[in-house]
């Protein structure tokens, strides 16, 4: 392996880390914040793998495997927490959780109205067929709603 590999890996790792940090700081969707944090972890993993290659041993990769483990735990718990939060306020917006602000402090509100963009139309996700029915016999969602 070439010696110049290590700095290049470090550079890519640093860039991923920085971009992830920006995502974590600016995005308001809880899930996106979490994904950004995971991306920061990927930057760190690149560092570790790069150093492992540099030193010609497997310690770096072993550490990345531990990182994967911990990240998986973290993801499980974070998703659970996000679900609980969502259940409470019916939104994934992190800005609704401002309860820990200083007393007598007004909550931060969104000032400017949104610019309605054409691309921002509601999206339709595929709906799964209820179990026990053949897809072609499944009722449309509207009908299912009327049937109860």
């Amino acid at each position: 392996m070439s010696q110049a590999i290590l700095p290049n890996y470090l550079i890519v790792g640093a860039i991923l880390f920085g971009l992830g940090a920006i995502g974590f700081l600016s995005r308001r969707n809880l899930i996106l914040m979490f994904l950004s944090a995971e991306m920061m972890l990927q930057g760190v993993a690149l560092n570790l793998v790069g150093f492992g290659g540099h030193h010609k041993n497997y310690q770096g990769q072993a550490f990345v495997i531990f990182m994967l483990t911990v990240a998986a735990c973290e993801a499980a718990l974070a998703l659970a927490l996000i679900l609980v939060l969502f259940r409470n306020r019916k939104t994934l917006d992190v800005s609704v959780w401002q309860d820990l602000r200083e007393a007598n402090q007004d909550p931060v509100q969104d000032e400017s109205p949104l610019l309605l963009e054409p691309e921002m139309t509601p999206m339709h996700f595929p709906r799964l067929t209820p179990a026990g029915l053949r897809p072609d016999q499944a009722a449309s969602p509207e009908e299912a709603a009327t049937r109860g």
């Binding site: 974590f24 914040m33 200083e102 402090q105």
Partner: peptide, 10 residues
């Protein structure tokens, strides 16, 4: 300094 503590995580 109070407004700094606005409760926003980010």
């Amino acid at each position: 300094f109070r407004p700094v503590q606005n409760g926003l995580l980010q």
